[in-house]
Simulated assay, not measured.
Amino acid sequence: MSDTPRLHTAGNTLLERARALRPLIERDADQAEEQGRLTTSVVDALHEAGLFGIWVPVPLGGAELSPTELMAVFQELSYADPSTGWVVMATTLENGTAGAYLGDEAVERIFKGPRMPLFAGQGTRPGIAVPEDGGFRLSGQWSFASAMLHSQYVHSLGAVEGTDEARIFITPIDDVKPLGNWDVLGLRATGSIDYSIDDVFVPESQSHAFDTNEPLRGGAIYRLGLLDQALICHSAWALGVGRRLLDELSRYALSRAGRPGQLAGSDAFHTDFARAEAKFRAAAALVRETWDDVERTLDSGRTLDVRQETMVRLALNHITSTITEVSHFVYASGGTSALRDGLIQRLFRDVHAGAAHITSGPQSLRECGRELAGLAAGESWVLFGLEP
């Protein structure tokens, strides 16, 4: 177990590098959407900037950013392009937790190259893992493996036969059969294809308990556990995309200012824009307030209590529903310019694809309400529900 109780922080250097990549990411976004994956130039630039190492523990050469530092980077990349932000958040979550939780033998194999390894995979709907000497035989089929087309390793949830223990299994990409079925409304450039694994041996050191919050290396961020760390990703993504939606609508209205009958001269539009801006800023403030509180708890050596677990889920659900509402206003206000293929239309589609993720689903919201109302005494969070 790691003996580093405090959060590691790395400052703003990586955020500045992410911001410097915005022109390249924006330039390549249409091509990435058309081909269903990020462009090689963007992936190479992300590697060169060190952005695929932002979640990896410091002992493995990573930056090991704090939750709020991670959120700032993901927000910046998602503002530039939602698919790029999504790919980076997914693969860095998975290579970061692999670096923290896997056994020494696996880490030595996986993290020995000149570049940070990229991961894809799925942590829901488990496959079956049959115990075998020294490891497990893993089989199953999983959906929505974001960044699969850029990855060298795959991160998959499996249930151990005989015990039903939930574990994460890491397999080389060559052991995976991609199913190539990413034909979707939004987030097209994430390449989030389905995949299958058929009776592949996974050494014990290349797996870890799904619910572990005891890192073998690295600091306090890994004491959040896998699921709560995933909430960092989706909250930050929503912050970036929501801000971009409102900024694009502002640019659209300004470009038509001074012409009779245009949006810029409408009192109703002015009022509705103010309301949308207020809703977004309020939801963003809840996200930041909640994660500031989390960081204070982690840095003191403690783990989150039930109310804090509730709040990180509620903050994500609220920012996601808010940007979905904002996207409707932006799309409707954009008129025929939004109807045609272009940035506002793509942002609208990407928001609806991202909002469908299980982490922002209705079950979590219901359970948050039950806990906040004092109706879940003695219960704790297990994934997206509260249990005794």
Rank of each mutant, 00 (worst) to 15 (best):
N95P: 03
E108T: 11
W86K: 10
S143D: 11
L60N: 01
I54E: 01
T40G: 12
D30R: 08
T124D: 13
A145Q: 06
M89F: 03
G121F: 04
A98L: 07
G61S: 04
P57R: 04
V73T: 02
G140D: 09
G134W: 06
E94T: 11
Q141C: 09
L93Y: 10
F74A: 01
H150Q: 15
G61C: 08
E33Y: 12
D104C: 09
L38E: 14
A49S: 03
R137W: 06
Q75F: 02
G123A: 10
V42R: 15
E48V: 03
I128H: 14
T40Y: 00
G85T: 13
L149N: 08
G50N: 01
A98K: 03
Q122M: 15
D44A: 10
L70D: 01
A98H: 05
S143V: 11
S143K: 15
G61F: 13
V88F: 07
P67A: 08
Q31T: 12
A129C: 07
G62P: 03
T97R: 03
V58A: 07
G103I: 05
L38A: 04
P57H: 05
A145D: 09
G121V: 02
T40P: 03
F119I: 00
F52H: 00
E108L: 11
V73F: 02
Q141D: 11
W142G: 11
S78N: 15
T39V: 09
P114T: 08
L38I: 07
F74M: 08
A145H: 07
T124F: 13
F52V: 02
D81M: 12
F144M: 08
F144H: 10
E48H: 01
Y79E: 13
D44Q: 04
L93A: 12
V42Q: 09
E64F: 06
D30Y: 04
W142E: 10
D81Q: 15
D30V: 06
G121R: 12
E33K: 08
G50T: 06
A45L: 04
V56Q: 04
D104R: 10
L77T: 01
P114L: 15
G99Q: 07
R115P: 01
L60F: 00
E108H: 06
G99L: 05
I54V: 00
A32L: 04
M148Q: 08
W86A: 12
R125T: 14
R27S: 03
E34V: 15
P57Y: 12
R27G: 00
D30L: 14
G50M: 02
L77P: 02
A90M: 09
P82M: 15
M148P: 03
T124V: 13
L51H: 05
Q75C: 05
V56R: 10
V43C: 08
A90Q: 13
F136P: 05
A145W: 00
D28N: 06
G36F: 11
P59Q: 10
V130F: 13
Q31K: 05
T68M: 07
V87T: 11
H150S: 09
A129G: 05
P67T: 09
R37E: 07
G99Y: 00
G96V: 04
E69A: 01
S78F: 07
S66M: 03
F111L: 12
L46S: 05
G103L: 07
D44R: 03
T84E: 08
